[in-house]
Design a protein around this nucleic acid. Structure first.
Length: 962
RNA sequence: GCAGGGGUUCCCGAGCCAGGUCUAAGGGGCGGGACUCAAGAUCCCGUGGCUUAAAGGCCAGCGUGGGUUCAAAUCCCACCCCCUGCACCA
């Protein structure tokens, strides 16, 4: 048989077909059988599934298979996410003939060009990727109950009915409210510009700016600032002479701002009328009056003002703002400009910085101090930005308002800032608008502004009682890894109201306001309970006409009168009860797993919505969080084409290889590194594994006990216990490593240590081993399982029980020592190559006694010093030489800390172990052609020229080579 | 900036919460050897420095710098660097 070339593909197809035929993963409630419900967040269908999806979902799959073998009734369903903007957006762009996008989809998503052309229809696109993805998930051999499959959006009327119920519920609970919200806005597209829609300005969000009014003639010059507390240090106003300014009428007031500001005001609900337009230079040299300080100040020219930021008008505080200081310095030294704008030289020379904030270590004028420290000489020096930041942060955090700040004097800047804003607001001299502190440019090339979105629907995550419930749920939940918990806590605390509806994209309309579509993260929160409904929908027992709100109230919450529901929803009472019972059986979700990027949003919303809608017994039980997948050292990125689809991977290496590779790749929140060369390596390991097991299966069926049987049984079942512990904590990588590599190497060691391994015994071990491995590599395991003559599926067999009597501490300790001593002796032989005889020495009896005492005392927590003193007293009669005794005890103490747990467990039997080890070593070395002799203390005629018996210790034999 | 995670020997990666078992697990790569016609697979040895004239030896090492302790990769403080998230985007 040509074993070396295993046909993975053929084996995988064979078993996938058989599983499907026998419906072993179709889960129905079974009374009194404990259940486990595992879910993976339904993937978004704007492309084929990639190895990142596989990495995460595999944790669900492995956990599901493990629990199934442990005797649980396991439900692992699957569904598809279509809700949102990207599918619709891509369809639009393809319709518009976006060649770049078409090429990208063709190339990275591996879609034939004639298919891409049909993607002008978003529905077609979603369906296409769903088909492709279903096929590939099946090829991975997941143990999924496919009868419960569904997809989202109004294209699935039953799902929409479910969302409608959920949102009516949330609204009636007061968790959906109307409000307004600032968004980054493209004035040309007339739509919000999310991070993904931007050419420039990723991560920039709307921030509040203060507008301070300076009296000027019949109107106000409206200056924008982030630091209203500096108003006490104002010396002049800056205007860009080349910019266009406008005088506008707002209510009873007249404002002057630059022209660009108008669209900000428009979008932020200000009504105004334009009275006049003029160039900045027109008002340069005139005077305005600062509020609060009531100072007359000059309007001066400045070219450093960014017309897009604020209002195009800035008030100058040279003592605390490096830009202002450099601007002032520049103008004082620049006669040309003074003349051009007809400014009085003397007057300008007299403008001096006014210090209003005390900042330790920065001198009288922090701005000047920092400018000098950073050696900034020009108004155009880019370091000015950094200088401004430093002064701002330091003053904000450590500054104290000086005596010249009215009743704000003596306050910390942090505190004064808020109070001054309030004070000026009350005086009517300050307003706040939203602005972007850094430029944002839409993909269409337009500079973005901030717009206030009115009449937006929000989920009220700010509600205190909601947060508290979420925190309570979290505290009862198991989180893997535990480090993720604090992140959840922070997120729950930090979360504010969140807009939950959009105007565009695919999805389900808000039931009471059909212009809005429930946004994607907001409709994916409690849908796991829909897996119970969707089975009946798919089987034709239910359709959307049955799925009125009353139906869901009854099935999910046990509310309502059966007669009435039967009548209103036209659902037969028995069916109704059956569905309700099925819900009660499967819910809550036991385990949900996602990558860490979904933690601060989806997973947290998942908790929020469950606690809002369901009673406590249906709150989620466990959440697993894992890292991301990098491709050959680069971040996975669909848009940059750095992506490996599951299809590619499975096509090249087969499902078991991909599964094992991913299972072994990274644990906890660490990222997985996808490397083709390593995947290949795993495949070759799988081939050898197959051959290795095959050879054992081929062995003759006879029982032939060996002295290593107990050892293998002991380490094997001990490892199974460890694997269980790891799987319970979702430590897939460690579990896979133990189960595959470490157990394998134990079995290899067993085979090499026995001249004739025991076939029956070995086959029993292999049988249990296959069961364990089947959670990682089910296809190969089924194949080998069948070769062993088993008639059932390994996937539905029973997890091996590690019986306590299988564990043999002494055997384990012995074998571990054999390995170690063998290595030691080998090292010596290296140095003395001519040796032909090996003398082995057991330690003196007294040392066994001492180490036993040490062990006992350590275990009851005695201090090292006490132990030492006790031992000196106890053994002084035996070893009269005190220095000799001290030396011995010290030596044993050091040695004790040097041995590992296995050996410590066997300390009571140390002598027995040592003897066995010595015998094993003699056997091994005799086989290698050395002549060996063993000596113990009680022997006569001990040949020990190097006094090796003296230096031998329990678990450390002495050697002499000659 | 804020929040969370992390920086370990050539690489990946465990250990850190509960300080002594760390001369740092386990892989991988690389070098050498065995087997083989050969390749692959498999097995063995080596993979910080020094010393092996000394028989299982000594020293250094866990982002940087301090501190606590008889003892620190592990605890405390400060700093540097990397990753993720920060909202209307899935």
């Amino acid at each position: 048989m040509g074993l070396s070339g295993i046909n993975f593909k053929q084996i995988e197809e064979k078993w996938q077909e058989r599983w499907a035929e026998s419906k072993i993963f179709e889960s129905e409630p079974i009374k009194n059988k404990p259940k486990v419900f595992v879910t993976f967040p339904y993937p978004y269908m704007d492309g084929p599934l990639h190895v990142g999806h596989a990495f995460t979902s595999l944790r669900c799959e492995i956990f599901a298979r493990y629990k199934r073998l442990k005797g649980y009734n396991v439900l692992f369903p699957w569904a598809w996410h279509w809700t949102g903007e990207p599918i619709a957006g891509a369809a639009k762009r393809i319709a518009a003939g976006d060649e770049m996008l078409i090429k990208m989809i063709h190339k990275t998503s591996k879609v034939p060009l004639d298919e891409v052309k049909k993607f002008t229809d978003p529905l077609y696109m979603a369906k296409y990727f769903t088909e492709v993805s279903r096929r590939i998930i099946k090829r991975l051999g997941y143990s999924i109950d496919w009868r419960r499959e569904f997809h989202t959006t109004s294209y699935h009327k039953e799902y929409s009915a479910f969302i409608r119920w959920q949102y009516n519920k949330l609204r009636s609970l007061g968790f959906v409210v109307k409000g307004s919200h600032p968004v980054v806005w493209c004035p040309k597209d007339k739509s919000p510009t999310g991070d993904h829609d931007r050419l420039i300005g990723e991560g920039v969000s709307a921030e509040q700016m203060n507008l301070i009014k300076f009296k000027f003639e019949d109107s106000y010059l409206v200056a924008a600032t982030l630091r209203p507390e500096t108003i006490f240090g104002v010396t002049n106003i800056w205007i860009n002479p080349d910019d266009t300014y406008v005088k506008i009428k707002l209510g009873n007031e007249k404002w002057i701002v630059n022209e660009y500001t108008l669209q900000k005001l428009e979008n932020q609900d200000y009504n105004f009328e334009i009275l006049e337009k003029f160039k900045g230079e027109k008002i340069i040299g005139k005077y305005a009056e600062a509020p609060l300080v009531k100072r007359k100040i000059l309007i001066l020219p400045a070219f450093f003002i960014d017309p897009y930021l604020g209002t195009g008008i800035v008030y100058s505080v040279p003592s605390h703002a490096p830009y202002d200081w450099m601007g002032l310095k520049f103008i004082k030294e620049n006669k040309e400009i003074l003349e051009k704008f007809n400014l009085n030289h003397e007057e300008i020379k007299n403008i001096e910085p006014i210090s209003i904030i005390n900042l330790e270590g920065y001198g009288e004028h922090p701005a000047i101090y920092v400018v000098e420290k950073m050696k900034i000489n020009s108004i155009k020096d880019p370091k000015l930005e950094e200088a401004s930041k430093e002064v701002y942060l330091e003053e904000f955090n450590k500054g104290i308002m000086k005596d010249n700040c009215l009743n704000f004097s003596g306050m910390k800047v942090k505190e004064a800032k808020e109070k001054i804003i309030q004070y000026l607001k009350n005086l009517g001299m300050l307003e706040q608008i939203w602005d972007l502190l850094y430029p944002v440019v839409c993909r269409c090339g337009t500079r973005c502004i901030v717009s206030i979105f009115k009449d937006q629907w929000f989920l009220k995550y700010s509600a205190q009682e909601w947060k508290e419930k979420a925190l309570k749920a979290l505290s009862k939940m198991k989180i893997f890894p535990e480090e993720a918990r604090s992140w959840f806590i922070e997120t729950i605390k930090w979360l504010d109201d969140k807009a939950c509806a959009r105007k565009s994209g695919l999805g389900t309309p808000l039931p009471w306001d059909e212009n809005w579509i429930v946004e994607t993260l907001s409709d994916s929160t409690i849908y796991m309970c829909f897996y119970i409904i969707s089975k009946y929908v798919n089987q034709g027992f239910l359709n959307y006409e049955n799925l009125k709100d009353d139906f869901f109230d009854y099935v999910f919450l046990g509310k309502g009168n059966e007669d009435e529901i039967e009548r209103i929803c036209k659902v037969n009472r028995d069916l109704l009860r059956k569905i309700r019972e099925e819900f009660l059986y499967w819910y809550p979700v036991d385990l949900r797993v996602s990558a860490k990027e979904l933690l601060p949003n989806h997973l947290t919303f998942y908790i929020f919505h469950h606690v809002a809608i369901f009673p406590e017994e249906f709150w989620p039980r466990m959440i697993g969080v894992n890292g991301l997948v990098n491709i050959e050292g680069q971040k996975l990125s669909k848009s940059r084409g750095i992506v490996v689809t599951i299809e590619e991977a499975v096509e090249k290496f087969g499902a078991d290889t991909v599964r094992l590779f991913l299972a072994l790749s990274a644990e906890d929140m660490n990222d997985c590194e996808w490397k083709w060369s390593n995947v290949e390596k795993v495949q070759s390991h799988l081939s050898s594994f197959f051959n290795f097991v095959y050879k054992i299966i081929e062995m003759e069926n006879i029982e032939r006990k060996t002295e290593m049987d107990n050892w293998l049984r002991s380490v094997f079942y001990r490892k199974i216990i460890k694997i269980e512990e790891l799987l319970e904590e979702l430590k897939i990588r460690s579990a896979a490593n133990l189960a595959f590599y470490e157990i394998w190497s134990d079995i290899k060691w067993y085979v090499s240590r026995t001249d004739n391994p025991n076939p029956i015994f070995l086959k029993n071990i292999i049988k249990d081993w296959l069961i364990i491995l089947s959670i990682f590599i089910p296809h190969i395991c089924e194949e080998l399982w069948e070769m062993m003559g088993n008639k059932n599926f390994v996937s539905t067999s029973t997890w091996p029980e590690a019986k306590i009597e299988y564990i043999d501490v002494i055997e384990e300790a012995k074998e571990e020592m054999v390995i170690k001593m063998y290595e030691d002796a080998k090292r010596l032989l290296e140095r003395k190559k001519e040796a032909t005889r090996i003398y082995i020495y057991l330690p003196r009896e007294i040392k066994y006694s001492i180490i036993k005492d040490v062990d006992e005392m350590i275990k009851v927590g005695k201090k090292r010093k006490d132990i030492f003193d006790t031992l000196i007293k106890k053994y002084f009669d035996v070893i009269k030489d005190k220095s000799q005794l001290t030396k011995t005890i010290n030596e044993i103490l050091e040695h004790y800390f040097g041995i590992n747990e296995t050996l410590r467990n066997a300390i009571n039997k140390a002598k027995e172990v040592d003897l066995k080890v010595a015998e094993s070593l003699i056997k091994i070395f005799s086989r290698e052609g050395y002549s060996c002799t063993l000596f113990k203390e009680t022997d006569e005629n001990i040949y020990d020229p190097m006094r090796k018996m003296e230096s031998a210790l329990p678990f450390k034999l002495g050697f002499y080579l000659a």
